[in-house]
Design a protein around this nucleic acid. Structure first.
Lengths: 227, 227
DNA sequence: TAGATTGTTAATCGATTAACAATC
DNA sequence: TAGATTGTTAATCGATTAACAATC
């Protein structure tokens, strides 16, 4: 009765990294479906998916899929269209998700114009900024609203997902307002550590940290061995 | 003779995640140094750093630091300024790193204006775009150059780090040119799987995948347990 | 049937956490 | 000295890889 999907997902401990890889499989299959119309088989083996992903092993792929059910046939492979639909369903992108963006600066605007969202079922409902000169403008059809209306907007429209692209010094305050409004999933681009209650899911994307990780390998290429 | 730093770093297997955490410690210490001028002690314990990071355990912090040397005093803690300098050195940001950006679209422009780079020792030398109407313009003081000059520019200026913000369909081609020019570290924002030789280090930042990971938790909040 | 390929068990590898002796 | 806190060893936990029986 509580079960909303027809794949098993409540018995095993699923590694976090698996979810990210499912997105990759989904992306690769969709690309295959779009481009390779002359394909003779309508199934695909884990070995073939492995090649599409360019690095993830067939073992890993079978293991990841097996967490959610038995989608393949032994000796045959996985049905391409069906598997794509299953992944879509697992990842939740068969639903539509309303999101908001806090901060209509350079990064915020870049996200507002990002084409990948709609395809994956994400709909940007509004952007918020404290700069009055921006308020009222539209970017890519999305209205920029005054920051102090954000919390009410979230409540009124029942938004669950927010993206933070404000400067570091406002990030905590913005996160607090989001959570107070009812948002439970946050993607944070501000390079700082935010506090939030345990029931909220928050992922950080910190471009500086990514760059420093890269540079670490450059700096110590010769005298270090990383696992 | 090959040893360029005075901290040990060539004996142990260092988890990849450690490097990302070192960046966080560094950021927290720098913030402390900047803001807390009235602090009485010039040392800090792992427990205190833990609080600043908002979640990383003291055990984890000591373990991470211990991979590189013995920087603290038992019963006392770590010298703040010294530790910050050590982290900076480990992370390579005591050096200056020249970088280029391929793609001067919305995201590329956002990065060109991103203030965090300079502080961490990253200098954007140039941006490249195939759109002639953009070529010659400057964004935040950085010149936009024609894409077909990129490879030569990399060679001439001996650039080692590149950021890809071009659309998916050009990303592989751009990566190939970067690598041909001599770039060995790439941060890729294009949501696709790129091929590259083993000596190149490439990190992906895929906003869709991050959002899908968040949504996965939303979608299955009630009937799944994630490790 | 024989070959292919899954799904899963067992083995390995890697990372984190707990605990505590060392020592400031 | 006694209390604090590191650095490290051992234990645990988590994720990946190898291998193969099941089966299409």
């Amino acid at each position: 009765m509580m079960q909303t999907n027809n794949y098993k997902n409540n018995k095993k401990n699923i590694p976090k990294a698996t979810i990210g890889r499912l997105s990759i499989y989904h992306r690769c299959l969709d690309l295959l479906i779009e481009t390779d119309s002359g394909r003779e088989k309508d199934t695909i083996s884990s070995a073939e998916i492995s090649k599409l992903t360019g690095g993830i092993s067939p073992d890993q792929i079978r293991r990841d899929l097996a967490y959610f059910g038995e989608f393949g046939k032994r000796g045959v492979g996985y049905p391409i269209n069906e598997l794509s639909a299953i992944l879509k369903s697992i990842l939740g992108s068969s639903k539509k998700w309303d999101i908001i963006i806090a901060g209509a600066g350079n990064l915020g605007k870049a996200l507002l114009r990002y084409r990948g969202f709609q395809k994956r079922g994400f709909i940007i409902k509004a952007a918020f900024d404290s700069d009055d000169s921006k308020v009222g403008n539209k970017v890519n059809g999305v209205k920029i609203i005054s920051a102090n209306q954000m919390e009410d907007y979230i409540k009124e429209h029942n938004i669950r997902i927010g993206i933070i692209t404000v400067p570091v010094e406002f990030a905590q305050e913005v996160a607090d307002h989001m959570i107070a409004g009812g948002i439970v999933s946050i993607l944070n681009f501000a390079p700082t550590t935010l506090k939030y209650p345990a029931y909220v899911k928050l992922n950080n994307i910190d471009i500086s940290i990514e760059l420093e990780r890269l540079v670490y390998f450059l700096a110590s290429r010769k005298n270090i061995r990383i696992k």
